[in-house]
């Protein structure tokens, strides 16, 4: 990881001298997700991770859209804004672009971010505003009670698709890489350690970080990610992405394919030097994109971790620089001078 990526993540956000604990980040509101919802695990992971950042609590803001996951801000004792379906990235962009001293988080779901809010998501990613976007992907609409979502597999039988859904799902990682995202990662609700390690890297990254979190909806799409949790098989299908490390699971490895692409091979059948070493900082997104396609069609081998983390100036910094440059060129604005600018004439 480059020094710049490490050093500038939240460098503009004031630090606290007070020691914080998980309790400091719990609000007084009763948490109202369905019992067993994966959101509880994510909330607990975030609440116990935040003290590690050592930021002034008042300089942290959680912005959400609409959906089950978007209730998240109410349960954190920070500033919070529960907004409109799909629009959280836009609202967070205005906030983060005008307040570089804030740590701004967007909490969203697969419907919120990829259906109604798809446009805002892709533009936030290409702009690279300093935001941490947590995309809770449960592959279903929960709050509206069980319709298929833009990440549901083809043929999904739901209330609105009794004969099976017809549309091809989005792969959020592929989408984000295609949208010029500078930081893209995937993790899972049930693995707190991994989730927090990804959050650690996401917050260290200055610019927009997109973290897809596989999240179980035990009411409408239970066990959607069961393979990744089943102790029998999870170590075989989970390909850990760690920068500088070979991309392997317990039994599999990612290697170059004969056609120039990449493929998953039996680990025992390939030599160590054939196994691809993960380079999250590669400016060329092709390999990260190829990695994101490995789990198509479904969960035979799933890369987990940081797909891509490159250093690119954050939008809010560039915006501030233009303002500073304007002042440097012409001095701070003076209202009288502004009004008197152009052709004027005097009467009387």
């Amino acid at each position: 990881m480059t020094e710049l990526v490490n050093g500038r993540g939240l460098s503009l956000v004031p630090k606290t001298d007070t020691k914080q604990t998980l309790k400091d980040f719990k609000s007084d509101q009763e948490v109202r997700w369905c019992p067993g919802c994966g959101d509880y695990a994510i909330l607990a992971a975030v609440q116990s991770f935040l003290p590690e950042l050592g930021l002034k609590r008042e300089n942290i803001v959680f912005v959400s859209g609409i959906g089950c996951s978007s209730r998240f801000p109410y349960y954190l004792n920070t500033y919070g804004f529960h907004s409109i379906h799909g629009r959280a990235p836009a609202i967070a962009t205005g906030l983060a672009a005008s307040r570089p001293d804030l740590s701004v988080w967007v909490i969203t779901g697969d419907g919120d971010a990829l259906s109604i809010g798809g446009n805002h998501l892709i533009h936030a990613l290409r702009r690279n505003v300093n935001l941490n976007i947590l995309l809770f992907n449960n592959r279903i609409y929960g709050l509206t009670k069980g319709q298929y979502s833009p990440t549901s597999e083809v043929g999904k039988i739901t209330k609105s698709t009794p004969m099976g859904s017809l549309d091809k799902p989005f792969n959020p990682i592929s989408l984000a890489i295609g949208a010029e995202a500078s930081f893209v990662a995937r993790t899972i609700d049930s693995d707190r350690k991994h989730l927090q390690s990804v959050l650690r890297e996401a917050t260290a990254h200055r610019g927009t970080s997109l973290v897809e979190i596989y999240q179980n909806c035990n009411i409408f799409n239970d066990n959607a990610f069961e393979q990744l949790k089943d102790p029998e098989i999870r170590d075989d299908i989970t390909l850990r992405l760690e920068h500088g490390q070979p991309i392997v699971s317990a039994s599999k490895a990612v290697v170059r394919a004969a056609n120039g692409g990449i493929e998953v091979a039996d680990r025992a059948s390939v030599s160590a030097d054939q196994i691809m070493v993960h380079d999250a900082h590669n400016p060329d997104p092709s390999l990260a994109f190829a990695l994101s396609r490995l789990d198509e069609p479904a969960f035979e081998h799933v890369p987990i971790g940081v797909f891509r983390s490159i250093d690119r100036p954050a939008y809010d910094v560039l915006m501030a620089e233009q303002m500073e440059e304007a002042v440097a060129q012409k001095g701070p604005g003076d209202l009288s001078d502004l009004l008197l600018g152009g052709d004027t004439w005097r009467i009387g």
Binding site: I60, Y74, Y79
Partner: peptide, 13 residues
């Protein structure tokens, strides 16, 4: 945001 002690949540509900 940035004002200590006044952390609060607002929204459309």
């Amino acid at each position: 945001p940035g004002t200590p002690g006044l952390e609060h949540r607002i929204g459309g509900i």
